[in-house]
Each structure stands twice: as structure tokens, then as C-alpha cells.
Design a protein around this nucleic acid. Structure first.
Ligand code: ATP
Length: 709
DNA sequence: CCTCAAGTATTTTTT
DNA sequence: ATACTTGAGG
């Protein structure tokens, strides 16, 4: 095929990035400059113009949804199916490699993937066993510490050699035992999926060579958010052909807290000899006003690659900043604007998004949108597949395909109740560990006379149920349906008759329809294994429907890579966005600023910022001041409504009243006390304080000198 | 072994 | 404010 026809939708810089197929290529470019489009066209170019077979291409994107879209677009360009192309998230692609190479790693292809919640349970269990219950680092902290080690490819052995600080040496045995427990359960966690592939390639030259030869072209989107393990994987996979194209924007690196390293993108040319660098400088997404604001924001970061970003689009209107009295007014104010957009301007709810820093902020918007009868969808938070009733059902499936999965066993053996309580499970765990046999095998084959009779018969029934269902694992839907019936799980929910029971029952039916949909869409492989592999690695955005005709609500993190005509960025308050934790840490602060840049650049034409003067957090009312990021935007670039545009003044005033309910205060005459209530705001506020010596007093803040202690 | 109630920690973002 | 853990009693 003639390449001109394919390349006519690209600008000259993008074309350069596409046709530069041999050797390493780094595309470093700002938001909305067409990086993803470049990659999509490059896929099509490789196949259609160069005749490269699709199966020798390995491409990663940040979400499965992005992968699906990129593949579908590339197929449209090619005019045929891209069969056998490896495209997906790092995790799903590594999962596929692991299923094939499982044995070399001491796993079987049926291995289970543990999510964050599973691995936290495991860490808790291990810490209990190691008598570290009262360890100064919480199980959660230990779990995330272990995760950060894995992201850096540090094994338990290596860690034990470098663990210096007191608490680190205590984590060593937990990490060791955690890995051993995973191995015994024939399970991996998210971090293992990448780490194991890297280890395998490093240790086994034959296997490494086989995979690295297979993939002639490697393409990576959102490269600024790769961690060290992923970077190493890219190096290893491209070792034979050396054709690797990575695209990204250091200004959009927002996953540092998850191990992402910006230096991966900044140092790429050093590690990949002969890298050709492509820069894209034209933004096609946003109007000029929005782009000006975005550029003004990111200019304040010091650790960055300076990039030019210009646009040819219309000026558009100034982004608006709305200042609301409290978070409820912010909710109703934003929803009012949204309903005007929909009803008066004929905008489809599809094209509108509300973005926020934390998931907890979504609730108020949901309530207001429901009240206004505007359809919406929330992305992220606790996802469907993380709900406990769904995880219970999935644990059954996991145990059916992987009988070694001890964690899943412990989760469901007594759900519904079968007389197998906590202490029985603990005894089983002990016995299984000391004999080196999976718990399920022990139950099937071993003598269980160390358990109460009730537990023994309960386990017997449980084992035969699992054994019976095993025969049906070629079709998830059939199996799951029978599982729901035979376990009596729904009956259990009905009987417990709690307020949420009904919703949980509905969720079970919803799971059944998801399994049905999977069976329908994968007629060649309807297996439980395939279903689990898919649902275990869904990202939050994968569960989002871009064409649902609904307003989208999500965190800024989830919105990465997406675009909307109209965007609301809410809760721009000091301590919330940026989070309080980032206040005194410049690196964290710069990441928060990049997050704000990402939020801003999602918008094509209508942008509204907002913040609330007071907000209730963990139960008490807080006075808020504007996010410092708002102050960094030149005044003439914003249209400010509902308050003074003089932030400096506001900053000052609010700094005088950082008082919240429960604050301990010192009064020049009354002495120490605790704030019970705050009425009104700013200078007009009346605070009620319970003083230690003088009891309850009402004070007008304007006339009192209260000091926070 | 199970249930209920009081007490405690907790949420920043997610594969 | 809420979710989860822990302890007493059935
Ligand atoms: N050459 C082009 N001509 C016209 N429109 C383009 C061109 N390249 C990209 N676009 C459009 O610009 C928008 C942004 O493109 P794309 O998503 O590829 O950018 P990106 O650099 O990946 O953005 P981000 O960094 O924000 O994820 C899309 O709507 C895309 O269709």
C-alpha cells in the first residue's frame, strides 16, 4: 500500500515518528499533541506498508480499554483484522507470557492473580504468624513497602542484604514468607507479573531469546508512568531487534507513588544507543485559552523537560473559576451549569466530565446529579469486581481452577457457613504449611481428626462441591450458574436481610450476566481460566462506557489519556488538591501540579475550576483556602465568579483562621480549650470553645486572638 | 462456632 | 463519619 494515503492524517513530526521504524525512538511531547494517534498509525504502518506480521508486534497502553481502541482504530486503517498482535497493559501482556512460561517459574498455567486486597490479607496473616501484630508499620504499610521493592526488582534475598533501618529488617521475614506463601498458593500479585517475566528473561537466555526474537517491534504508550521493572522489561524484550518506540510526556507523570520513574523517559536516549527523538509541539485538543492556562501551570515545575506547545484552534472562552461556600454548593452549582449545558445548549452528557482529586468527593455530585435527573457514571472507587460478594464468587472460581489457592480457600470455605470457623481454618493452615500440602489437597485426602466433627463434615461437603464443579470449568457461565445455585449463596444473603442484601443479590446476578457476556464474546474459549485472567486485570477505566450518554465522574488519575468537551475540576483547595501531604515535599508537590496539568489538558473547550470555602472532612468542618495552583495562573487567564479574585488576600485571611472543630486553641485570657462548633466564615465566624478552666464560651473570631496549639 | 456491640483506625491517587 | 477489628456472651 502507498504510505501517503495512510499518513495524510498526520503532521510532519508525527510522520517522522511513524516511518522511523528501525532502532529506538523516543517521542517526547506535551498533552494532546497526538502521541497516541502516532502510535496507532505506526501499528497500521508496520503491518500495512512494511508487511510486518501483526503477531510480531508488542504494544502496551495504560488501560485495556485504550488497547482495545487503539487496536480497533489500527484495524480500520489497515482494513483488516490484526490477528495475533500483542497489545494490552503491561500486566495483561506479562500475564500471557507467564501462562506460557509458568513452569519455568515454578507455577502452573492456572496460577491465580491476587489483587491488592488479597495481598493485604496475606500480609496480615503472615504478620500474625510472625507475631508482628503490633509492629509499628501497619500491614498496609508493609504491603506497600513490599510492593515498592518489587517495582524496583529487589528480591527478598537482596533486600535482606540491604535492609538497614530497624523496621526494614523486620520486613525481611515478612517479604520472604509472603513470596513463599504466594508460591505455595500457585499465585502471583500484580507486581510479580512484571518482576517474574524480568527474572525469567534474565535467568534463562533461551527463553529470553525466544521472546525477544519474536517481537520485532515494541511500542509503549504513556512511557512516563513506567516503573523500573517495566523499563527493564522493555529493555529485555527489545534486546534482539532493538526496534522500540516509546511515547510520553514527563509533565504528565502522575504515578510516582506507585513506583513510576520519570527518569525512564528522560534517560531513555542514554540507555538506548542511537535513539531518535521526535517532538510534537502542536496541540490538537484544546482551545487556546485552555492551553495558555495549562502552559502557565506546568511552567512552575522545575524538574522537567522544557517543551513548546502551541495550537491553531480558536481562542475559545476563558476558563472559569467558581468559588462556593461549601462542598454542597459546589455540587449543586456544578450540576446547575451541567443542566444548562444539556438543556439549553444541547450538549450530550457524554461530553461532560467532573474530575476530582479523591474518590470520596464523588458522593455529593452523584446525589446532585440524581436529584437533577441527569444520567451519570462513576469510574473507579470500589469497582464491581472488588465488592465482597463478587470476590467471594470469584474465590470459588479461583479455587476450582487452582486448588492450591489457599487464600481463596480460607475466604470461602465457610461462606455460606459450614461450621468451619476461624480456629479450624488456622489449624488447617498450620497443618498444610508443616506438611507442605495445599489446604484443599489436605482436605480432600488427609485425615482431619484434629478438627471438630461439624467442621469435618462441612469440609467434606465443600470438597465434593468443588470437585463436582470442576467438571464444568470449560464454560464460566454454566459453572457460575450452578455454583450460585448449589452453594445457596443467594439464599444466605436473603436470610441475612441486611439493608445491603438486596443490592448484593443483584450484584450476583450482574456477575452472572458478565460471565454470560464473556461466554458470548469468546466462543472459542469460554473457560473459567480465561474469564478470571480478564476480570483480574481490569482497570477502573475499562469499566467505563464512553458512549453511554452519561456524565462521567472520575479522579484525575483515571482521566489520564481521555478527553472531554466540557470539564469541571472540583475541590481545588489547599490540602485537597494539592493534598496536605505534598505541602512540604517539593517532589510530591510537583507531581500534584502535574496532576492539575493533566486535569486541565483533558478539556477541549469548556473548563470550570471550583473550590469550596468550607468542607467537611472526616466528620468536621474545615476552612479552606484556594489551591496554590490557582494562584499560579495569571489573573487575566481566568474568569473568576462568586468571590474575590485576589487570592493573596484570601490566602492571608484564611491563614489567620486555620481553625476547625476539635482544634486545640489558646486564648490570652481563657487559656487552653477545644473548639466545639464554628458558625459563619472568615471574619464573621463565631466559634464555640470549651475551655479547660472557664467552660464553654462563644467568641467572635474577628475580636479574639485565638492561637492554634 | 457464631452474633452483637463497643472501640479503633482511617482514605490519596490504582495495576 | 464510616469501616473494620476485637471482645464478651450465647
Ligand atoms: N495530526 C492531527 N490532526 C488532527 N487532529 C489530531 C492530529 N493528531 C492528533 N489529533 C487529535 O488530537 C487529540 C489528542 O490526540 P492524542 O490523544 O493522540 O494526544 P496525546 O498526545 O496522546 O494526548 P495525551 O498526552 O493527553 O494523552 C485527539 O482528539 C486526536 O484525534
Amino acid at each position: 500500500m502507498k504510505s501517503e494515503e495512510l499518513l495524510k492524517d498526520l503532521n510532519p513530526d508525527q510522520i517522522k515518528g511513524v516511518i522511523e521504524t528501525e532502532g529506538p525512538v523516543l517521542v517526547l511531547a506535551g498533552a494532546g499533541s497526538g502521541k497516541t494517534r502516532l502510535l496507532t498509525y505506526k501499528l497500521a504502518y508496520l503491518v500495512k506498508v512494511l508487511g510486518i506480521p501483526a503477531y510480531s508486534i508488542f504494544a502496551t497502553t495504560f488501560t485495556n480499554k485504550a488497547a482495545g481502541e487503539m487496536k480497533a482504530r489500527a484495524e480500520r486503517l489497515v482494513g483488516g483484522a490484526l490477528k495475533g498482535m500483542w497489545i494490552g497493559t503491561f500486566h495483561s501482556l506479562c500475564g500471557r507470557i507467564l501462562r506460557i512460561e509458568a513452569e519455568a517459574l515454578g507455577l502452573t498455567p492456572e496460577f491465580t492473580i491476587y489483587d491488592e486486597d488479597d495481598s493485604l490479607r496475606l500480609v496480615k496473616q503472615i504478620m500474625r504468624e510472625l507475631k508482628l501484630d503490633n509492629f509499628k508499620v501497619s500491614p498496609r504499610g508493609v504491603a506497600s513497602y513490599i510492593s515498592s521493592l518489587k517495582e524496583k526488582l529487589i528480591t527478598p534475598e537482596e533486600f535482606s542484604a540491604i535492609a538497614m533501618k530497624g523496621f526494614e529488617s523486620e520486613i525481611v521475614p515478612v517479604y520472604k514468607e509472603y513470596q513463599a506463601a504466594l508460591q505455595r498458593s500457585n499465585a502471583v500479585d500484580f507486581d510479580d507479573m512484571i518482576m517474574y517475566v524480568v527474572y525469567l528473561f534474565r535467568q534463562n537466555e533461551e527463553i529470553h531469546h525466544r521472546w525477544a526474537s519474536r517481537f520485532q517491534y515494541i511500542l509503549v504508550d504513556e512511557f512516563q508512568d513506567t516503573n523500573r521493572a517495566q523499563y527493564e522489561l522493555v529493555k529485555l524484550l527489545s534486546a534482539v531487534h532493538r526496534n522500540v518506540t516509546v511515547v510520553g510526556d514527563d509533565d504528565q507523570s502522575i504515578y510516582g507513588w506507585r513506583g513510576a520513574e520519570i527518569r525512564n523517559i528522560l534517560n531513555f536516549p542514554n540507555d538506548f544507543q542511537g535513539t531518535k527523538i521526535v517532538k510534537l509541539e502542536q496541540n490538537y485538543r484544546s482551545t487556546r485559552r485552555i492551553l495558555e492556562v495549562a502552559n502557565a501551570i506546568v511552567k512552575n515545575n522545575s524538574m522537567r523537560h522544557e517543551k513548546r506547545l502551541w495550537c491553531n484552534s480558536e481562542d475559545g472562552s476563558l476558563p472559569t473559576l467558581n468559588i462556593y461556600q461549601n462542598e454542597y454548593e459546589e455540587g449543586s452549582g456544578i450540576v446547575k451549569i451541567i443542566s444548562r449545558l444539556i438543556n439549553d445548549n444541547g450538549v450530550s452528557p457524554n461530553n461532560i466530565a467532573i474530575l476530582y482529586r479523591t474518590n470520596a468527593q464523588s458522593r455529593i455530585f452523584e446525589e446532585e446529579l440524581r436529584r437533577a435527573n441527569i444520567p451519570y457514571q462513576v469510574v473507579g472507587g470500589i469497582s464491581f469486581y472488588q465488592r465482597s460478594e463478587i470476590k467471594d464468587m470469584l474465590a470459588y472460581l479461583k479455587l476450582i481452577v487452582n486448588p492450591k489457592d489457599n487464600l481463596s480457600f480460607a475466604r470461602i470455605v465457610n461462606l455460606p457457613p459450614r461450621g468451619v470457623g476461624k480456629s479450624s481454618i488456622q489449624k488447617l493452615e498450620k497443618e498444610s504449611a508443616s506438611r507442605g500440602i495445599p489446604i484443599f489437597t489436605l482436605c480432600r485426602e488427609g485425615q482431619l481428626d484434629f478438627l471438630p466433627h461439624l467442621a469435618q463434615s462441612g469440609i467434606k461437603n465443600f470438597v465434593s462441591l468443588i470437585e463436582e464443579l470442576k467438571g464444568k470449568k470449560d464454560d464460566v457461565y454454566v459453572l457460575l450458574k450452578e455454583l450460585v445455585e448449589k452453594t445457596g449463596y443467594i439464599k444466605m444473603l436473603e436470610e441475612e436481610a441486611e439493608p445491603e442484601s438486596e443490592e448484593r443479590i443483584e450484584n450476583i446476578y450482574e456477575l452472572l450476566s458478565s460471565a454470560y457476556a464473556f461466554s458470548e464474546s469468546h466462543p472459542e474459549d469460554r473457560s473459567v481460566e480465561g474469564y478470571l485472567a480478564e476480570v483480574s486485570l481490569l482497570t477502573s477505566v475499562d469499566q467505563w462506557d464512553p458512549d453511554s450518554g452519561r456524565v462521567s465522574l472520575m479522579t484525575v488519575h483515571s482521566a489520564k489519556g481521555l478527553e472531554f468537551e466540557y470539564v469541571f475540576v472540583a475541590g481545588l483547595e489547599h490540602g485537597l488538591f494539592p493534598l496536605a501531604k505534598a505541602e512540604f515535599d517539593n517532589e510530591l508537590l510537583e507531581e500534584e501540579r502535574r496532576l492539575f496539568y493533566v486535569a486541565t489538558t483533558r478539556c477541549k473547550r469548556g473548563l470550570w475550576y471550583s473550590y469550596a470555602l468550607t468542607r467537611r472532612m472526616h466528620g468536621n468542618e474545615n476552612f479552606c483556602k484556594a489551591s496554590q495552583f490557582l494562584e499560579e495562573i495569571p489573573k487575566e487567564l481566568l474568569n473568576v465568579e462568586g468571590g474575590s479574585c485576589d487570592f493573596a488576600l484570601q490566602y492571608e485571611r484564611d491563614a489567620d483562621f486555620p481553625i476547625s472543630v476539635n482544634s486545640r486553641v489558646l486564648h490570652p485570657f481563657f487559656g487552653f480549650g477545644r473548639v466545639l462548633e464554628i458558625r459563619g466564615r472568615g471574619k464573621n465566624a463565631i466559634v464555640t470553645v470549651l475551655f479547660e478552666k472557664f467552660g464553654i464560651k462563644k467568641l467572635a473570631l474577628a475580636f479574639t486572638e485565638l492561637e492554634i496549639v
